[in-house]
Computed example of a mutant assay.
Amino acid sequence: MPLRSIAGQLSPAGPRARLSILIYHRVLARADALLPAEPDAETFRWQLRVLASVFNVLPLNDAVERLDQGTLPTRAACITFDDGYADNATVALPILREVGLPATFFVATGYLDGGMMFNDQVLETLRRIPEGRVDWPEVGLEDRRIQDDQDRKHLAAELIQRLKHLDPVERAERAQAIAERAPEPLPTDLMMNSAQVRELSAAGMTIGGHTQTHPILARTADEQARAEIAGGRETLEHLLGEQVRLFAYPNGKPGQDYDARHVAMVRECGFDAAVSTAWGVSTGKSDRYQLARFTPWDQTPGRFALRLVRNLMTRPGRQEV
């Protein structure tokens, strides 16, 4: 039986619909050995074509409304991007327009116009470190050796994991200490500028909130967490001149990266819905402030399509808090 037919049986139209939401972060102009999980332009193009051949792709705001009403079409799906990388506008947007699909972009506003997220400070520093011995005891690397990009990738992953769940202030300080090791200036154009956010919106894409500086909310004081959630929304609304209705939790694992306090904050700040990174699908019974998402990482069209369909069999709402 063709995958499209199987998907239709698993995700019928109407009240029994199952909504699939895909997560992307970046679409690279060309493949990058230090970012093997991020699709390049050609990969993204065939992924979108496969998605469109099996699913009916909707804007996320429309999908949430129709999920509430019980009027979703069969095989409903949405595309989302997290963080606000510049290649969302320069690489992903032209391909989305070419294939004719909508997407939602969740933007961490503190990095607009020249900022850099902590993980990129780590990665871009190690990209520039020459081969040889690395001895950085103040950030937890002692007597390591870099021989190739594989070593750089592994060291970056190790440092990012160590820093990810720190208090936001401490995380920023440690990331800056690493960035100061770079033998040359780090790029200032990895994240979108304000004009690119407006360009996405003008092209019919949806812009959503993603806090200001992408803290792990569960490791952040309540007052600061609320300010991050509300402040990101206010910045985007001022930039776009329109209301921002959707939110994505940074990192997004329920019960680990955010909890019920933050779900309440997002609701109280005026958002209509929010997405997590709990895998699976959402149904009419799902919490609108904890919609499931997933990342299909497969490298061939057949396996990519199969994973899209298999995700429909994941029990919805299993990781809500």
Rank of each mutant, 00 (worst) to 15 (best):
L123E: 10
E170N: 06
D149L: 03
R162Y: 03
P187L: 05
P137A: 11
D135Q: 05
S194C: 05
S194K: 01
P168E: 01
D120L: 13
G209A: 10
L200Q: 11
E124Q: 15
D143K: 11
R181A: 02
D113R: 11
Q196Y: 00
D113A: 03
H165W: 12
G132Y: 06
R127D: 05
E170M: 05
R127C: 04
K164I: 07
G209M: 11
L163I: 15
G204M: 03
E173D: 14
A202P: 07
S201N: 12
A195Y: 09
M205C: 08
M191Q: 07
D120V: 09
G204Q: 02
V139F: 01
R144D: 08
L159A: 08
M116F: 00
L123T: 10
H165I: 00
D167E: 15
V139G: 10
N119R: 04
A177D: 03
P168L: 03
D135T: 10
E173L: 15
T211L: 08
L112S: 09
M191C: 12
E170W: 00
R171M: 08
A175T: 00
V107P: 00
D151G: 06
L123M: 13
R181Q: 15
A202C: 07
A179C: 08
G208W: 09
D143E: 13
L126M: 06
A202H: 08
Q196N: 05
R171K: 15
N193L: 03
P168M: 00
H165C: 07
R162Q: 15
Q121G: 05
E131P: 01
F118N: 10
N119D: 14
L141H: 07
I207D: 09
T125F: 12
E158V: 13
D113W: 10
H165V: 04
R144Y: 06
M192T: 04
R133M: 07
G208T: 05
P130S: 10
A156C: 10
R127A: 13
A156N: 03
L190K: 07
G132W: 08
D148E: 06
D148H: 10
V197D: 00
L186Q: 10
G110N: 09
G140A: 01
K164R: 15
T206A: 06
F118C: 02
G204L: 00
L141C: 09
R152Y: 07
P168I: 07
E184M: 13
T125H: 06
A108V: 01
R128Y: 10
N193G: 15
A177F: 00
P168N: 00
I160Q: 12
R174Q: 15
T125I: 07
R181Y: 06
E170L: 11
E158I: 12
V134T: 05
Q196H: 00
H210W: 09
G110L: 04
I160H: 01
V134G: 08
E173N: 12
M192N: 02
T109S: 13
L159S: 07
R171S: 06
F118V: 02
E142T: 14
G132C: 09
L112E: 13
V139M: 02
I160G: 02
A202S: 10
D148A: 09
D189G: 10
G132D: 06
R181P: 07
V134I: 14
W136S: 12
L166G: 03
M117T: 08
E131Q: 14
A203Q: 02
K164E: 12
E124M: 06
L186D: 11
R171V: 04
M192V: 06
A108G: 11
P185Y: 12
R171W: 01
Q150E: 14
D113S: 05
V197T: 04
T188R: 14
T188C: 09
D149W: 08
